[in-house]
Design a binder for these strands. Sequence first.
DNA 1: TATAATTATCGTAATATTGCGATAGATATG
DNA 2: CATATCTATCGCAATATTACGATAATTATA
Lengths: 109, 109
Amino acid sequence: MGLTKTEIFTDKQNKLAQMMKALAHPARIAIIQSLIKAEACVCGDLVDELGLAQATISQHLKELKNAGLIQGTIEGTSVCYCIDPKVWKQYKEAFDTFFVAYKNKDNCC
Amino acid sequence: MGLTKTEIFTDKQNKLAQMMKALAHPARIAIIQSLIKAEACVCGDLVDELGLAQATISQHLKELKNAGLIQGTIEGTSVCYCIDPKVWKQYKEAFDTFFVAYKNKDNCC
DNA sequence: TATAATTATCGTAATATTGCGATAGATATG
DNA sequence: CATATCTATCGCAATATTACGATAATTATA
């Protein structure tokens, strides 16, 4: 086992879970927040900023890239990473929809 | 290795990542959505509803309980689970704050 | 072309997660 | 009290994640 049974859930449920997963690590939260503050960033800056090895940062950046949240454009010897506004909006809306679904009705438990 | 270095991140970053992790599985998303729809629920119903074994459901419920998102009150031989409104609100606000921080400025990359 | 600078990838070790059968624990009912 | 019902926990196997050193790949510069 150890394998999530995606086939028994809806596409939306699987997608939302994957979105959550993309952000379910403090390093990736920190990277995103750093990109927001800087509006642009290269991996090297992040290695200095966070306390993780270059290989580790690169791996987290790859996951964020796979999630679609960030894009990287090559700029000389370095890479400029930034947030993808469209995907960010999709995330925001998906999360909003999820959290808005529950209204506290005080009529249970 | 294999151990997240929480000590190099802020409390907020660690907490937000943990919140994301609590919801980073389709079964837990499905459980929450089921609780929202039913306004109350027992574990047995979820076992029928989702296609996972009772032990697995119980494990996911435990994680959601640890995350504070749900509460369980014993009701005879079964347990009535429901969402904790206060914690839900905290989650909602934390997520909102995170997603609102980025404004698309079209002046990068 | 050689060197420096920067990022990606590979390989590996340690830890975490997922799923489930088996079983224990708790409570209602006969 | 014995039995049925329901949930929690244990133990295990399979897979995933995290972290990092070493190294490859790419591009700028001397």
